[in-house]
């Protein structure tokens, strides 16, 4: 098997591996946290970010399949199926995030939650079912229920839900539900940020807001391809790299904001008072006369306190 790839392809493939590695690492951290806390919240969070991770694996694997086995119809269909599945996993992140957020951020009633997930799943189910049907039975040169976005200069393409005609309703519906969900969450976290009295909670919620914003952008950046960014090879690569960075940032911010590791909590809290005094950033507080009353000479530096105490005890 002679592997001759265009130079642009390497950027996508290497970026895919880097994204996959970083996301896997973060997912493992989330799983470790889940086993520590064993709460429904941490489980839903894993499912949210696992969906992003699965999309990344499937997309990268599909690129590799297309690049390694050019012209092989079976591999091509498998790659297309993987890509479409990845897209729907990414879209389903919205649903996981919605249910996760319903634990603390928003309090929708059961009927609303049922309608939400039913309508959302209907969009994903119909779009997915029709796309798979078209991949296996339709004409690849003229796809109807999915779109092929040709990445200029690369040995593979992007597969996406249909972007033309009335079929746009499918992706439009998912986009609208996702946007409303994420916007609600951003508004809610911003409101809570203002109400929180504790500095760590305030800053933590700000990170959470940012992570939701980035999660939203993850889907939005891919839309740049629909508007023609795929036609210029370097721009196409740049958009893909940018998307990768946004995905990684979204998951990192999500991990930091939602989980709030101990080291981050300490960092957000700021240095302890004693550390500030110790490093000279704050003046020393008043000394107790009793601690120094038997000192042979006046205290000139804090290091002498030890000696003075020892002396006074003698």
């Amino acid at each position: 098997m002679a592997l001759v790839l265009s130079s642009y392809s390497y950027y996508y493939l290497i970026a895919g591996i880097i994204n996959f590695t970083v996301l896997s690492f973060l997912l493992v951290l989330l799983i470790i946290h889940f086993f520590r806390k064993r709460t429904v919240g941490t489980f839903l969070l894993i499912m949210t970010y696992a969906s992003v991770w699965i999309n990344e694996i499937l997309m990268t694997l599909a690129f590799y399949l297309e690049a390694l086995y050019p012209g092989n119809e079976n591999y091509l269909k498998a790659a297309q199926t993987m890509q479409m599945t990845g897209v729907f996993f990414l879209v389903y992140t919205i649903n996981w995030m919605y249910f996760f957020a319903n634990r603390h951020l928003i309090r929708d009633n059961d009927l609303f939650k049922l309608l939400y997930t039913s309508i959302f799943s209907a969009f994903v189910g119909v779009a997915g079912g029709l796309a798979y049907y078209d991949i296996y039975t339709g004409d690849r040169n003229n796809p109807f229920w999915y779109s092929i976005i040709e990445l200029a200069g690369a040995d593979f393409n992007l597969n996406y839900p249909p972007t033309q005609g009335l079929r746009l309703i499918l992706i439009g519906g998912m986009f609208a539900i996702g946007s409303i969900t994420y916007l609600r969450l951003i508004v809610r976290t911003t409101r809570l940020t203002r109400k929180a009295k504790d500095l760590v909670t305030k800053k933590g919620l700000r990170i959470v807001s940012l992570s939701i914003l980035f999660l939203w952008l993850t889907g939005l950046v891919l839309a740049l391809y629909i508007f023609g960014a795929n036609r210029i090879p370097w721009l196409s690569v740049l958009v893909y790299l940018f998307r990768g960075m946004i995905v990684i940032t979204a998951v990192i911010l999500g991990y930091l904001g939602w989980i709030m590791p101990e080291w981050l909590r300490r960092r957000l809290r700021g240095k302890a008072w004693i550390a500030k005094v110790y490093t000279g950033k704050l003046p020393e507080p008043p000394k107790s006369k009793e601690n120094i009353e038997k000192a042979p000479k006046p205290i000139t530096s804090p290091t002498s306190a030890n000696q003075i105490v020892e002396i006074s005890e003698q």
């Binding site: 806390k37 709460t39 634990r103 603390h104 809610r188 989980i259």
Partner: peptide, 16 residues
């Protein structure tokens, strides 16, 4: 109350 519950919920469910 809902706001307060939201703020308290983070600590118990997620944040250490």
């Amino acid at each position: 109350d809902v706001d307060l519950e939201s703020l308290n919920g983070f600590g118990k469910d997620l944040w250490k």
